[in-house]
């Protein structure tokens, strides 16, 4: 069982985030720049505790210009 401890909190200024190589801060800036949403759903068909069928669906919801810009576009 995981040890209980306070949530690890970090604070950064915008300048820190924009100039950082730290992945967490880079993710944060990317989050500001990217408003796309990924939806994922799954369905399981189970009989008597036995998994028979798995159906997984994923969808991307974002602006048309972002999709049309192609991979690698910010």
């Amino acid at each position: 069982m995981a040890e209980r401890r306070p949530l690890d909190m970090v604070f950064a200024t915008p300048e820190d985030a924009l100039s950082a190589r730290d992945e967490r801060l880079v993710d944060l800036v990317d989050g500001l720049l990217d408003h796309g949403v990924v939806l994922h759903g799954e369905v399981w068909l189970t009989v008597a505790g036995i998994d028979l069928v798995y159906l997984g669906l994923s969808a991307v919801l974002t602006t048309a210009d972002k999709i049309q810009a192609g991979p690698g576009a910010a």
């Binding site: 995981a2 040890e3 209980r4 401890r5 306070p6 949530l7 690890d8 909190m9 970090v10 604070f11 950064a12 200024t13 915008p14 820190d16 985030a17 967490r24 801060l25 944060l28």
Partner: peptide
Amino acid sequence: GVDIHLGQLVAS
């Protein structure tokens, strides 16, 4: 601070 082992919170 939140007393829960969950992950890391980055605020900016």
